[in-house]
Simulated assay, not measured.
Amino acid sequence: MSEIAFRRLDDGFDRWDALLDLILASFAYMNGRIDPPSSALALTSETLKAKAFSEIAYAALDGEQLVGCIFCRPELESLYVGKLAVLPTAQGKGIGKRLLALAETKARELGLKTLRLETRIELTDNHATFAAWGFRKTVENRHAGFDRTTSIEMRKAIT
């Protein structure tokens, strides 16, 4: 793997199909494991582009290959982190942590005190990874129509 470059997704970015493929490949391990299914399955290239322009999004590139992305949305006190994805073949190399560092920098610039994310209750490996990165479980949630916990919220204080 060469040096990873990070770029903000803007009007100059035109690889929406490849970005969608990256997200779907990164989230594929969840298929059949979480209920309800991931919202990533409902994304299209067009809705992904609209999401990138209505939120703050970054891509990680290894040369020309897209290897990761993160989408962030400012809230009242937090920067919400969603669709943090790293290509399975590129996982374990610090890309996710570096994408979160970009989110932390953006939160500071916006004067926000925390990063906030949600992860599915079944994905205990994700819980452990985010905890190792400084996130703490704050709330259990359930999707509409479910009588059990389906996700947890985790927050990381920005210092």
Rank of each mutant, 00 (worst) to 15 (best):
Asp35Asn: 07
Leu110Ile: 00
Asp21Ser: 09
Asp10Ala: 13
Ala103Leu: 06
Gln91Cys: 07
Arg98Lys: 14
Thr124Cys: 14
Leu19Pro: 01
Thr138Arg: 15
Asp147Ser: 10
Val67Arg: 02
Ile23Tyr: 01
Lys49Ser: 07
Phe135Asp: 05
Met154Ala: 14
Ile56Asn: 04
Glu153Val: 15
Ala101Asp: 13
Arg136Pro: 08
Asn126Tyr: 08
Thr119Trp: 05
Ser39Val: 12
Leu76Arg: 15
Leu110His: 01
Ala52Tyr: 02
Tyr58Glu: 04
Ser2Tyr: 05
Gln91Ser: 12
Thr114His: 11
Ser2Glu: 08
Thr47Asn: 12
Arg142Ile: 09
Glu140Thr: 05
Ala42Tyr: 08
Asp147Lys: 10
Lys97Thr: 13
Gly96Trp: 03
Thr159Pro: 15
Lys93Asn: 09
Ile34Thr: 03
Thr89Trp: 11
Leu115Asp: 03
Ala59Tyr: 00
Ile95Arg: 13
Leu115Cys: 06
His127Tyr: 07
Arg33Thr: 15
Leu115Arg: 04
Ser26His: 01
Leu20Met: 01
Arg73Trp: 14
Ala25Thr: 08
Asp14Arg: 04
Phe27Thr: 05
Ala52Cys: 12
Leu123Ser: 12
His143Leu: 14
Ser78Asn: 08
Leu19Trp: 02
Met154Arg: 11
Leu48Trp: 00
Leu117Thr: 04
Ala50Asp: 14
Lys51His: 15
Leu66Trp: 00
Ile152Trp: 11
Ile70Tyr: 01
Arg33Lys: 15
Asn141Gly: 14
Leu100Tyr: 05
Ala25Val: 08
Tyr29Pro: 11
Gly94His: 06
Asp35Thr: 10
Arg15Leu: 03
Val67Ala: 07
Gly96Gln: 07
Gly111Tyr: 02
Ala40Ser: 14
Phe53Cys: 06
Leu123Ile: 05
Ile34Val: 13
Val86Lys: 03
Leu22Lys: 00
Lys106Asp: 09
Asp21Asn: 11
Leu87Asn: 10
Lys51Gly: 15
Ala18Val: 00
Thr149Asn: 15
Ile56Trp: 08
Ala85Leu: 04
Leu66Gln: 00
Ile70Arg: 01
Ala128His: 09
Leu115Ala: 09
Arg7Phe: 09
Leu48Asn: 00
Arg98Ser: 13
Asp17Tyr: 01
Ser78Arg: 10
Leu123Lys: 03
Ile158Thr: 06
Ile70His: 03
Lys83Cys: 11
Leu41Arg: 10
Thr138Met: 14
Ala60Arg: 02
Gly134Arg: 03
Thr150Ile: 11
Glu75Asp: 10
Leu19Thr: 01
Gly12Asn: 06
Cys72Leu: 04
